[in-house]
Nucleic acid binder design. Structure first.
Lengths: 196, 196
DNA sequence: GTCTATAGAAAGATAGAC
DNA sequence: GTCTATCTTTCTATAGAC
């Protein structure tokens, strides 16, 4: 009997998990954790409902895994601003685009859901609290202050302005999809909120 | 045997229904129609779970009734702008305040839920479609145009700008409560989106 | 009119066949 | 590894006692 290729098996398993996660993220962001039935995720992933449980022990576990991923992505998006050489205005604009962009949107929406809903697992709340949006925003305060000095941004408490600004973005993310062109237009108008 | 005072009985029944509606609105807006269990509404209203069904035949029926109420309130809020003698800018500002105000907020949030969620009863969707937000916004287009002529508002397609503006408001309504002072501050900043 | 107890339906999670 | 069938839990809705 030939030895099984364990590495290959592991990789298959990992791919399956990714497939399930991708399907789950889509459904969770659309219908919320309670509105999402395991059967929906299975259908979206093209597998049977029972098989889902061979990869994740529960709906909550799957949800929590997705929240972890989303937080890491978000942390990276904020961190990558540091390395950009552009002006404060351009930095915020870039971040806004990323957040509203369809490919990243689901992650931000998931975090949004954790922050606003009472029905998500406590553990998900904990994870988001570990690096909460306020702390992401804190990273931007120096950027914003610099922009104020350069006359790019309006006067006022940077923390409050940024908080309002990202509330608005979060709100927009929750709304039904618009097409790409509209999104691009939106970004410039949104900047009016914080520009001089 | 003295004749029963039917009018009194009717009134009691009506009060009970209002009590249940008030509790339901609170829970529905917080947890969504699926996240809301009848037991939660009953608890919030301080009655037993079974009693709820003596006043409303189903969760959906109760939800739909609330949506009707909310649409009527909203329609009135928009309509009342017509009779105001203030400037276009002041009118929009007033409407914004009303929408973000805690006392009306729940109604707007319920409508928001109907528009964005897939899980609400079809009938609720229908009711909202009868007077959908776009048509509310249409009422404001003449106001906005006048504001543009007066130089109060920025240039651009009124329909698109208003749509974005109310998207932002809707988004903000979904976020956790802020205190009154902050709200007032927000309104002025939000106006920057559409001001010249 | 109101409550408690319970039937019925829906969804989460598991077991067993292939 | 995957699917179908089933157990279990949770919630909606009804029935019956007071």
């Amino acid at each position: 009997m030939p030895p099984l290729n364990e590495q290959q098996l592991d990789q298959n398993r990992e791919e399956r998990r990714e497939q399930i996660k991708k399907a789950a993220l889509k459904v969770f962001t659309k219908r919320g954790i309670i509105g999402t039935k395991i059967s929906m995720i299975a259908k979206e992933a093209g597998i049977s409902q029972g098989l889902t449980y061979r990869y994740y022990h529960s709906k909550d576990e799957l949800f929590i895994e997705l929240v972890k991923d989303a937080m890491e992505e978000t942390a990276e998006a904020f961190a990558s601003l540091e390395n950009m050489s552009s002006s404060p205005l351009e930095k915020i604009k870039e971040l806004t685009k990323k957040m509203l962009d369809t490919s990243n949107k689901h992650s931000f929406m998931l975090i949004q859901q954790v922050q606003t809903s009472d029905e998500v697992p406590d553990k998900a709340k904990e994870i988001v609290r570990q690096y909460p949006i306020p702390s992401f925003i804190e990273q931007l305060i120096p950027v914003f202050k610099k922009g104020q000095e350069m006359g790019e941004f309006c006067k006022g408490d940077p923390a409050k302005l940024l908080m309002l600004y990202f509330s608005v973005i979060s709100g927009l993310m929750l709304l039904p999809n618009k097409d790409e062109e509209d999104q691009a237009l939106d970004v410039d108008i949104l900047m009016k909120l914080i520009r001089e």
